[in-house]
């Protein structure tokens, strides 16, 4: 192959990234399962000890497992905290997760209330599902935008 003129080179870069973008997104079930795993980590604080920590570890393992599965099956490694337009989505969801988790812990262990942990878990699960889908959309748009 010979060197390209600038226009062809730029077109090749765009075509290659668009080709990857066309099938880079995880399957549709990925986002709800990711959200479920994140929500379960928070809702686990409603359980009596030691089941709280068993559930937190199991939910965390679920999140790691689906990411690992997608990475292996797609051949793509990409992390939530990568630089770019996806970072605000990651940070926004991180803030929701931390706020939900802290509220669940305080209300459960300082005030003896279990239901706020379940409620916070549902909110985090919905936010996680939205964030996962939004993150993929932004990432794919970024690939196509160059």
């Amino acid at each position: 192959m010979t060197a390209l003129d600038p226009q062809d080179a730029l077109a090749l870069v765009r075509r290659t990234r668009a080709g990857l973008a066309s099938h880079a997104a995880p399957p549709r079930w990925y986002a709800p399962v990711y959200g479920l795993g994140c929500g379960a980590m928070v809702a686990a604080h409603a359980l009596p000890r030691p089941w709280t920590w068993v559930a937190v570890v199991a939910a965390f393992a679920l999140v790691l497992a689906i990411y690992g599965w997608w990475r292996r099956s797609s051949g793509i490694g990409v992390q939530g905290f990568r630089r770019g337009r996806t970072l605000p989505v990651t940070l926004a969801f991180g803030a929701v997760f931390v706020a939900g988790d802290v509220a669940a812990i305080i209300l459960r262990y300082d005030h003896g209330l279990r239901w706020p942990a379940v409620l916070a878990g549902v909110v985090v699960a919905l936010a996680g599902t939205w964030a996962s889908r939004a993150w993929d959309r932004v990432w794919i748009a970024e690939m196509r935008r160059l």
Binding site: M1, A9, L12, V13, G77, V78, E142
Partner: peptide, 27 residues
């Protein structure tokens, strides 16, 4: 600037890392 290397970089610039087999299929 060589076409194959340009394509390798185009794919990797959109990811943190990519598997050799995926890149081979893509390009």
């Amino acid at each position: 600037h060589a076409p194959v290397r340009l394509q390798i970089c185009a794919i990797l610039s959109a990811t943190d890392e990519a598997e050799f087999a995926l890149i081979r299929r893509e390009i």
